[in-house]
Amino acid sequence: MIQRVQTIFLFLIVVAMGIALSNPIWEKVGTQSLETAKLTALQYTQQKTVAPQAGVPTQSVPVTFEVSVWYLGLLLGLVAVSSLYAIFQFKNRLTQTALCAVNALMLTAIMGIILYRTLYAGKEFGNPADQGTFLIGFYAIVGALLFNALANRFIRRDEKLVRGSDRLR
């Protein structure tokens, strides 16, 4: 039935993916106060302010470098859609288990992309010793991993209960 506890965890995955899509995932402030790098679900942005050359009476100019990471947003959306679909597959627990396995693979890929972008690509920017700060979007993805594992556990528990009651008949 739809009022099982795994439904709550699958819904929390959908909420966590919405949070990850709408909030920044990572941020790093460079050695100078005007240098920042930010990773969101759709783009990676580096911004620094270039000081004017000696003898030229102009103001400092901000320079922005943007890289589209649309595939990260696509994966986050796919996890949300497959979790929402799994909620309504309550009559077929094997399908729910398979969807949770697919979600686990996609969430692992998301974490790999984020860690590559932040720890390797972001290391070149600003202070190499500083790894930056993970923000609420990252922790929402970690929460989704936890909720996915819990949903899978309760789906398997229900399946075991149903198979055990079939043996008693």
Score class of each variant (00 low, 15 high):
residue 83 S to A: 15
residue 4 R to E: 13
residue 64 T to P: 06
residue 55 G to P: 10
residue 25 I to T: 01
residue 3 Q to P: 13
residue 43 Q to N: 09
residue 134 F to R: 04
residue 157 R to D: 15
residue 5 V to S: 06
residue 61 V to N: 07
residue 139 Y to T: 10
residue 78 L to M: 10
residue 70 W to K: 11
residue 100 C to V: 08
residue 62 P to E: 04
residue 123 K to N: 14
residue 26 W to Q: 02
residue 149 A to R: 04
residue 157 R to Y: 13
residue 66 E to P: 11
residue 132 G to L: 04
residue 161 L to A: 15
residue 54 A to D: 11
residue 104 A to P: 01
residue 159 E to F: 14
residue 97 T to D: 05
residue 92 N to F: 00
residue 132 G to V: 03
residue 4 R to S: 13
residue 45 T to M: 09
residue 74 L to Y: 03
residue 25 I to Q: 00
residue 86 A to C: 14
residue 8 I to G: 04
residue 143 G to A: 15
residue 168 L to N: 15
residue 118 T to R: 00
residue 54 A to V: 14
residue 98 A to M: 08
residue 147 F to E: 02
residue 134 F to D: 05
residue 94 L to G: 06
residue 75 L to A: 13
residue 77 G to Q: 07
residue 140 A to R: 08
residue 101 A to K: 07
residue 74 L to E: 10
residue 32 Q to L: 02
residue 45 T to Q: 11
residue 128 P to M: 03
residue 159 E to N: 15
residue 136 I to Q: 11
residue 129 A to L: 07
residue 167 R to N: 09
residue 85 Y to I: 11
residue 40 T to A: 02
residue 94 L to N: 14
residue 49 T to V: 15
residue 157 R to A: 15
residue 111 M to L: 11
residue 152 N to R: 06
residue 47 Q to I: 10
residue 61 V to E: 06
residue 111 M to Y: 05
residue 60 S to E: 07
residue 17 M to S: 06
residue 133 T to R: 07
residue 105 L to E: 03
residue 12 L to D: 10
residue 116 Y to N: 07
residue 88 F to Q: 08
residue 21 L to K: 05
residue 91 K to M: 07
residue 63 V to K: 04
residue 67 V to D: 13
residue 146 L to D: 01
residue 20 A to D: 02
residue 83 S to H: 10
residue 71 Y to L: 14
residue 58 T to H: 05
residue 88 F to C: 12
residue 72 L to I: 12
residue 111 M to G: 04
residue 141 I to Q: 01
residue 93 R to E: 04
residue 4 R to C: 07
residue 4 R to T: 15
residue 52 P to I: 01
residue 83 S to R: 04
residue 116 Y to G: 05
residue 75 L to Q: 13
residue 55 G to M: 09
residue 163 R to L: 15
residue 129 A to T: 15
residue 81 V to K: 07
residue 76 L to M: 15
residue 136 I to W: 04
residue 21 L to R: 03
residue 12 L to W: 01
residue 91 K to E: 11
residue 167 R to H: 13
residue 136 I to C: 06
residue 66 E to H: 10
residue 7 T to Q: 02
residue 165 S to W: 14
residue 169 R to Q: 10
residue 117 R to I: 08
residue 137 G to P: 12
residue 80 A to W: 13
residue 35 E to V: 01
residue 17 M to E: 10
residue 63 V to D: 03
residue 27 E to Y: 03
residue 80 A to D: 08
residue 96 Q to K: 07
residue 143 G to H: 06
residue 24 P to G: 01
residue 74 L to D: 12
residue 107 L to I: 08
residue 124 E to M: 11
residue 92 N to W: 05
residue 24 P to I: 03
residue 102 V to P: 01
residue 2 I to D: 11
residue 169 R to N: 14
residue 147 F to M: 13
residue 104 A to L: 03
residue 56 V to E: 10
residue 143 G to R: 03
residue 18 G to Y: 04
residue 122 G to S: 11
residue 126 G to F: 00
residue 19 I to T: 12
residue 153 R to L: 15
residue 98 A to N: 06
residue 133 T to V: 13
residue 140 A to D: 09
residue 165 S to E: 13
residue 109 A to F: 06
